[in-house]
Structures are given as structure tokens and as C-alpha cells.
């Protein structure tokens, strides 16, 4: 009788990936199909901004993903510190580059969305600036992963930094908002106002879910990569120690 799959065990997790990924890929494809159709074809232009409001269907979901992935990374970081489990390390490490990419996408679409309205590619608006600071934190995390050699130690150190970052994000958000109102900049950037018409809310929801499922799929694959990367490292060391045993005892031959 097969025991309950213990997903903390890497081998079981690899089987989960092989089973789950085709499913989530299909769901992601369907959601994107519907989402893009709604976003581009089936929703009205904004009475003020006109067509550029369609960029919101990329900008808002990617901002949501930037936060969502940071939460995923922080919980994995918590798992690393509390249970010291290599799978938590893999979840945490694989989430960082994905989070960085979505945050970058959020910044670029924000800049593209703002350009027609303000005439410049970048405005230090409170929300955009907070996402930008989050982007700097993500870059710091990815850099920290690349500098520490030993995976176990790296995971614990990055976990600590991630959690410290998590505590600081609300503080940064508050201070950036205050900073923004302090220097009341000329243009106020309205991100789709409080009451969004239903016709705009629907595409937004679909696009957000498609982004989320895209992340889930990529994250599962990336976790598998991290598990295999750690296995390659272990086997390389094994090969090194195996190499140790084969010191050719050749001093019997005369010197060439």
C-alpha cells in the first residue's frame, strides 16, 4: 500500500510536479485566453484615458503578483528557519527571480501607462515608488542568493533578510505615501479609481487569476530545478570524494 505522498520528501514532490504541471498549464492557458479577449476586445475604453486603460489589465495583476510572491517567499522563509527543510529552501529560492520579473513587469507597464498622461516615462507616484522599492528588495534577495556558496546557509541567511524585508514593507509603504503627500507633486496619478465599472472589473479578475496560475506553474517547475540543482551539487561532491580514492599508485614505475 503506497504510503501517503509526503510532499516534503523531494522525490514525492517531483512526482507531484509531473502530475500537476500539465493541469495548471492548461488552466493558465484557458484563463489567459479569456482574460486577453476580455481585456483587449470586449471591454470599453475609459472615457478619460481612452485605450491606454487596457494597460491596467497588466499593471494591476503584476503589482498583485509582486506582493503575492513576496508573501509566498516569506512563508517559505519562515518554513526554512523553523523546520530547516530543503524543500522550503527550494520554494523560497525559486520564487525570488519570478517575483523580480513580475515586479519589473509592473514597473514597465506602469511607466507605459503613465507616459501618455504625464508626458514623462516616470513619476515618483506613491504607489509606483513603493513597488520600485519592493523591486530593489527583490534584487537584493536575488543577489544574496548568488553570493553565498553553501545552499543550506544561503537559505537561512536569505530567509532572515526576506522576513526583515517583509516587516519593513508596510513601513516603507507608509513613509513613501507620506513623502509623496509632503512634496505634493503636480500630477495626481489615478489608478482606476475606487469604483471600477463591472465591464472593467471582469477582465481584471481574469487577468489576475491567469497571472497567478502562470506563477504557480512556473514556481512548481522552478522548485523542481532547485531540487535537481542541489542533487547535482551533492553528486559532484560525491564524484570528488570518489576521485579521492583513485590516487594512482604509480610510483612503482620508473620516472619517465
Amino acid at each position: 500500500m503506497r504510503t501517503m505522498p509526503n510532499y516534503a520528501n523531494p522525490a514525492d514532490f517531483l512526482r507531484l510536479v509531473r502530475v500537476a504541471v500539465p493541469g495548471t498549464t492548461a488552466i493558465t492557458a484557458i484563463l489567459f485566453g479569456i482574460g486577453l479577449y476580455l481585456a483587449l476586445l470586449d471591454s470599453p475604453p475609459d472615457y478619460q484615458q481612452g485605450e491606454t486603460v487596457r494597460i491596467m489589465y497588466l499593471h494591476v495583476p503584476s503589482a498583485w503578483m509582486a506582493m503575492f510572491i513576496y508573501v509566498v517567499m516569506s512563508s517559505a522563509a519562515f518554513g526554512t528557519l523553523v523546520w530547516r527543510h530543503p524543500l522550503a529552501d527550494a520554494v523560497q529560492k525559486s520564487a525570488a527571480p519570478l517575483g523580480t520579473s513580475f515586479t519589473f513587469l509592473c514597473l514597465v507597464t506602469g511607466s507605459l501607462w503613465g507616459k501618455p498622461e504625464w508626458g514623462t516615462w516616470w513619476v515618483w507616484d506613491a504607489r509606483l515608488t513603493s513597488v520600485f522599492v519592493l523591486f530593489l528588495i527583490y534584487l537584493g534577495i536575488v543577489a544574496l542568493w548568488q553570493v553565498i556558496e553553501d545552499p543550506g546557509k544561503a537559505a537561512r541567511l536569505v530567509a532572515i533578510f526576506t522576513l526583515v524585508g517583509a516587516v519593513n514593507i508596510p513601513i516603507i509603504k507608509f513613509s513613501v505615501d507620506w513623502w509623496n503627500t509632503l512634496h505634493q507633486s503636480a500630477s495626481v496619478f489615478r489608478m482606476g479609481g475606487p469604483t471600477i465599472a463591472m465591464s472593467m472589473l471582469l477582465p481584471l479578475i481574469f487577468m489576475t487569476f491567469s497571472f497567478t496560475f502562470l506563477f504557480v506553474t512556473l514556481h512548481l517547475l522552478a522548485i523542481r530545478n532547485e531540487i535537481l540543482r542541489r542533487r547535482v551539487r551533492r553528486l559532484s561532491m560525491l564524484a570528488a570524494s570518489a576521485g579521492e580514492a583513485e590516487v594512482p599508485v604509480i610510483f612503482a614505475e620508473p620516472a619517465e
Partner: peptide, 17 residues
């Protein structure tokens, strides 16, 4: 006696290697 470990990063080698 290092050809078996020639393509491994030096960090993985033992002190003797």
C-alpha cells in the same frame, strides 16, 4: 591523480586534492 575531478569546481575538492 586529479583527472577524475578535473571538471569539478575547486571548492568541492578535499584538502588533499
Amino acid at each position: 591523480g586529479l583527472s577524475a575531478v578535473a571538471d569539478l569546481p575547486a571548492a568541492y575538492l578535499s584538502a588533499g586534492q
